[in-house]
Design a protein around this nucleic acid. Sequence first.
DNA 1: AGCTTTTTACCTGATATCAGGTAATAGGAA
DNA 2: TTCCTATTACCTGATATCAGGTAAAAAGCT
Lengths: 211, 211
Amino acid sequence: MDKVYKTVIVDDHPIVISGISGLLADLETVEIVGKLQSGVLLVDYIEENQVDLILMDIFLPVINGVDLCKTIKQKYPQIIIIGMSSQSERSLVMQFIQNGGNGYVLKSASFEEFGNCINNVIQGEIVFSDEVKTIISQPVSDDLEHIPSLSRREKDITLLLSKGKSTQEIADELFLSFLTVQTHRRNILQKYKTKNVAELIAFLLKNNLLN
Amino acid sequence: MDKVYKTVIVDDHPIVISGISGLLADLETVEIVGKLQSGVLLVDYIEENQVDLILMDIFLPVINGVDLCKTIKQKYPQIIIIGMSSQSERSLVMQFIQNGGNGYVLKSASFEEFGNCINNVIQGEIVFSDEVKTIISQPVSDDLEHIPSLSRREKDITLLLSKGKSTQEIADELFLSFLTVQTHRRNILQKYKTKNVAELIAFLLKNNLLN
DNA sequence: AGCTTTTTACCTGATATCAGGTAATAGGAA
DNA sequence: TTCCTATTACCTGATATCAGGTAAAAAGCT
């Protein structure tokens, strides 16, 4: 007789918990023993109960999933942990795995994908849902990978630019010469290979580099 | 005997659909007749089936929830539509309601909240889950309230602006006069009371009006 | 059919941005 | 201490943007 994995679901959305529960109910290898809404509750739960498998949201209030995973794996390396999120970002997935995660699944994954991942992860594999696989396997043209970062002064200036300030206004506000601000502007545009501030602001906001 | 509301759930995450289904199964007033993963499928479904209530994710691929809601309400004003999302933003909720939405619920809402909202919305009320209520009841300087929307052409132009295109390039691309594009630019800046394109793009992206 | 909004288009002048240079000083890291 | 990056600053000329005005088609709504 196969082992039945005592499984805990951690997510701050009751709906998601309910959804996963419904899905896992069909699998005979897992048994849901806990439905928790925060990382703190999870840590407490593990202290006092037998747990074999954890499905956890990465974006949890207070503690983030990566740190939570690391903490748990340090004390209980035998527990299998699968991370979940709505959107996936390459670096985030990598971080999660590097901190001991056994898999990463997007919430947009189909039921079938979900089931497959669970089945494979208990075989000892590191599992990813299809979309995650696509994202992490992209060769990532090396130059596109490292997005240059802004220096302190450059951040000051881009922030003011995004508020519609002109070069002169920025110079006044930061007690700099008009010409200095102009130099910074040029450097910033060059850094991101953008033609003008409009494109620059769009790029920064889309890459969460502003604020 | 009370009417049973034929209900459709629209979300690109199968898990969420499953979760809501589970929850609604307990309610006797609603009957789930459709589980769809996109706005396009929803529009098709409505054409050919009787629908009384829609629960839709706001962040859907291709079409956003607000526009989808507007489109549906124009043709079928009697259909009750509840919006859902993970995080709530005041302006987004307001926009949704202004475009005909009958309620807005966070996915982090408890089962009880969810149930209450459904029960009340079919009584004709506009409903919000608790957290949404908190957010929208915060006093806001009235002028910040109504965000004007862009016309089709204006959207075309802002999109190109965000890609760093100059007035001349936009004119060429859209087969318009340079002067026409200039007029559009001015109107758009005026519409949002922004000083220049940088501020405009920042505003649009922060308010999810671009793309 | 009449009204409103959108889209198109033109003119002018004041400012601002962009792109090409160069270069001294300050601060942090190896 | 040496090297590198960041920060500061100046010059010039070509383009682009912004702000003010006006107005006629075209499209959409009632």
